[in-house]
Amino acid sequence: MITLPLANFLAQPVGVSQFVIVGAIMFTCGAVCMATKRNALGILMGIELVLNGANINFIAFGSPYLRSDAGSLGMDGQLMSLFVIVLAAAEAAVALAIALNFYNNFNSIDVDRANQLKG
């Protein structure tokens, strides 16, 4: 009998893989959002989703509880995700500034109109 991957996924107790799956879904949603939205703000939102999907992975892999390693106090994953949050905030600020300038120049925030750098 062929065992599919993730076949008895729901039957297991909540562990790392569940978190990873949630992260993957968020990442995918973010990526799809970035690829489909023409609105620059929509793309920014997609970016947030992608980053937070990655954050969930950091938390999951870094959590001592989820790894059944409660004796230690590893904080690497949490710290990394804190960095990502800070970076995301900075990135959002820069991106919003770009979006504002873009709007000033084109009277629109449709990213498809920003193709002046094509080869």
Binding site: M34, A35, R38, V111, D112, A114, N115, K118, G119
Partner: peptide, 18 residues
Amino acid sequence: SLRRVQTGRLRQYIMFLV
């Protein structure tokens, strides 16, 4: 020939990435 890939469209780049 490679310059054609460089469309300048952001969404397309993301598609390429994915």
